[in-house]
Simulated scan of single mutants.
Amino acid sequence: MKVYVTGSTGILGRRLVDYLSDRGHDIVGLVRDEDGTQVVESRGGTPRYGDVLDPKTLTHAIPDDIDVLVHAATAIPGSTKPTDEEWARNDRVRLDGMRNLLDAAPDGVKQVLFPSVVWVARQPDGSRFDETAERHPDRGTQSAATTEDLLRERATADDFDATILRCGWFYAPDTRDTKLWGERLLDGDLPIVGGGILGRKDAALSFVHADDAAAAFVEAVENEASGIYHVVDDEPVTGAAFFGTFSERLDAPEPSRIPAWMARFFVGKVGADMLSSPMPTTNEKTKRELGWEPEYATYREGLQQVVEAWESDGTLAELESEPAANSRDARHNVST
């Protein structure tokens, strides 16, 4: 099939270009500069210049014979304490980007895929949930919920399959967050955020290795899937266990703790709530209907892969040699 990918240079997008190309599909990736061109070409795709927020560029950027569209573009804030303006830009990339993409799409598109997030359906009582659960969007997930709704409405009107893959929290050797976590754990400067007055209430979170997330999209494309799927690993885990295990793998100091109410002053409400509000979900439907299995079944195997990759490519030595102050100054500039 011929697949068009926005966000083709991002954590998910570049894997999609790589994996789908390897499976024999013809991949076109939307890029904005020469660096993006090189990323897409190096992974077997064909770059096309354009911007999801500039509708007139999409008219020429989307080939007429596309079968599948994947809107993987995001603008997740990279600063430690994001402003509302930063979140608003991500909202526009998600929602306006999807609307512009659908408006510019040629006739004959069979399937449109959107990477949403599982915590859009996080339950107020912290209970386990699946794809049928009622959504409870907040500031960080409202645009994901609205984009889900837009996609399903347009799928009915325009006769294509809408495929929503709600992903758990990404981690991988090359993600911005994972690198930042590694830096701060090695610095002894990444506290565990917990609920309650003293921060002792741990929340079960759902993670997924970015490699496994991309593999789920490949299965969704090749199975011509339609509907909502949760893409997470096999075992929800508390932040305390995840970051505690990560620190052990890195031979870093044991993380301290901080209550969520205090963490809001440093990382903002969205970030503090992400770490302290439970989001335990299941991948049973995705496994059953798509035939997908995560290579990294739990965070233990995934974090081991992260550290081994860092040891192999020199990232770990670089992180260990960086002075803590310089590492903190560079946090806003960690590459996506």
Rank of each mutant, 00 (worst) to 15 (best):
K81T: 03
G7F: 07
S8C: 03
M262H: 05
D273V: 01
A121I: 01
Y229G: 08
D329P: 00
H25R: 04
P77I: 04
Y4F: 15
V68Y: 06
Q305T: 05
W181V: 12
W169R: 08
A121Q: 13
D212F: 06
P82I: 04
D161S: 14
E301A: 14
A210D: 07
P323E: 12
E295I: 08
P137I: 02
A121Y: 05
P191Q: 11
Q142S: 13
E254Q: 13
D138T: 13
R200P: 00
V52W: 02
A88T: 11
D273T: 03
A220I: 04
K56I: 05
V70C: 12
D35W: 05
M98I: 10
P124L: 07
P259L: 04
R200F: 12
T156Q: 14
T238Y: 01
Y171W: 06
T147D: 09
P55R: 09
M98D: 09
S79N: 14
D91K: 04
G108H: 12
D158R: 15
Y4T: 07
R32V: 04
V70A: 11
D67H: 15
G44R: 10
V17E: 01
V221L: 06
A172I: 01
R43M: 05
D187E: 13
F129K: 09
D67R: 08
G199N: 03
V70E: 03
L185H: 03
L205E: 07
A325C: 00
G140C: 10
P191W: 06
G291S: 11
F266C: 00
D26K: 10
A241G: 01
F243I: 01
V112S: 08
R152E: 15
T282D: 09
I228A: 12
Y229D: 11
Y299I: 15
R200K: 13
F217W: 05
V93Q: 08
G10W: 03
G126S: 08
R184T: 05
V52M: 01
P137T: 02
S247K: 08
D54I: 13
N90L: 09
D54Y: 00
V218Y: 07
Q304L: 09
M279K: 14
G268M: 11
Y229T: 07
E131G: 10
G140S: 15
E235Q: 15
W169P: 00
A241Y: 02
D91Y: 11
R92A: 15
T57F: 07
A121R: 12
L180H: 01
D54N: 13
S79M: 06
C167L: 14
A272L: 02
E153V: 10
R32F: 04
D54Q: 14
A297N: 07
A324C: 01
E222V: 04
E293T: 15
Y171I: 04
E301W: 05
E248H: 09
R15V: 02
H71F: 12
R257F: 06
S312G: 10
G45T: 07
